[in-house]
Simulated scan of single mutants.
Amino acid sequence: MTRLRPTGDWDGTRLAHEGFVFSADDELVERVVPFVLEGFRRDEPVLVVAGERVRGLLAGNLGSDLGRLTVFAAAETWWRGGHGTLQAYDRDLRALRATAPSWRLAAEPTWLAREDGRVWSRYEAVANRCYDAMPYYSLCLHDARRLPAEVLAAVDRSHPLTWGGTAPAPGPAYEDPAGFLRSVQPAWTERPADAVVGTVTAPVQGRRALSAAVPGDRRARLGDVVLAAHELLVNALRVAAFAELATWTEGDTFVVEVSDGGPGLPDETLGYVPPDPATGPRGMWLAWSLADDAAVRSGPAGTAVRLHFRRHPPGALR
């Protein structure tokens, strides 16, 4: 029999990111329990954040070892939207980095079963880039009995590792984070004929134009729209003498596009990357966090960013 290697040849110096899809309880137990016990043998902090059923299975199989876990928490209360969840996750990772040379995490993002939680696949993809130097093994648990096929396909595309039966193996469907994001962001179509387009040479011009352009039935979003677009205009005017600001409505969505003729973005994933606390918030992160969705087109001839703001019913959570 081949000896089980829960983390393969991982040496604890950089991120290892595995998407583990299971369709039976015993598959989950056989994968996660050895993963946890290996962490104990290596004196690594082991964190488990999962749904109620998964926690119950692990508790029953770990027995007295359950108390050795550094964290054993319910995933159901962790979802705060994509940006809010990742920001809290980022804070916890930085705290661990300050106290442990390496650690491991078994996490079940239960919110992927929700319509509003499926955006998490984008953050899973970006984690491969922004946490590459973090010394931990992230074992992401996905129950095929609960998740739709399109979510499971995104798991395969956003995780560089999968389970090979006795050891982790390269995921054959894994995609570069920027390419993955381009494929799942809103489709980039031609501006409609009735789009309002103007040239902006200072952010204050853009703020004034947007204050007038936001439709009356979504004035409750005015602050979000103006602040998000302001951040993009500031970025655009750092690399170009002027920016173009366009606005239009698609169904129940108000779209803002900011474009420039600069050299292009160094990294199209920046809107999903948490800002470094030492350097303050980044404009794209703030803009993405205020909008309901975003899309990017960038290259040597310039960058265009579209922010989507939906009309939310009164009292609805974003």
Rank of each mutant, 00 (worst) to 15 (best):
R145C: 04
M284H: 11
L57V: 12
A240W: 07
H83G: 01
L233C: 07
Y137D: 02
G12F: 05
V119M: 02
A304C: 03
L93R: 10
Q185N: 11
H308F: 15
D9Y: 11
A169K: 13
R146N: 02
D90H: 13
D9W: 13
R145T: 08
F22V: 00
G264R: 04
S23F: 08
H312M: 08
T303F: 08
V255T: 03
T70M: 09
M1H: 13
S158D: 05
R208P: 03
E76F: 02
P34S: 01
A88Q: 09
R221V: 00
P274R: 02
G283H: 01
R129A: 12
F35M: 00
G216F: 11
N128T: 15
S183L: 03
R94G: 03
R122I: 01
D26H: 12
N128W: 09
A173G: 05
R306K: 06
A240Y: 05
D116Y: 10
F72R: 11
D43N: 13
D156R: 14
A88D: 07
V234H: 04
E44Q: 12
P170H: 09
D11C: 09
S64V: 15
A95F: 02
E190N: 07
D9I: 11
V48S: 03
E76K: 04
S289A: 15
L147G: 04
D26N: 03
W120V: 10
A127W: 00
A16T: 08
L227R: 12
R5G: 04
A291H: 01
A193G: 15
A106D: 00
T249M: 04
R5A: 12
R53E: 09
L15V: 01
R5D: 08
S289I: 05
A95D: 10
L245N: 04
V33F: 03
P281D: 07
A193K: 15
A240M: 07
R157N: 05
D92A: 15
A59N: 14
Y136P: 00
G271W: 06
V54G: 02
R207V: 13
D9A: 15
V32G: 02
R14W: 07
P281N: 04
H142F: 14
L286Y: 06
R318L: 07
A144V: 06
P109C: 03
A50R: 02
S211T: 13
R282I: 00
V225T: 01
T201A: 12
V46M: 09
G84Q: 10
G223S: 14
S121E: 03
V204H: 11
V184S: 03
P275M: 06
V197Q: 10
D116P: 11
Y272R: 07
Y174T: 11
L181K: 08
F35I: 00
P215V: 07
P168A: 03
E115L: 07
A240I: 10
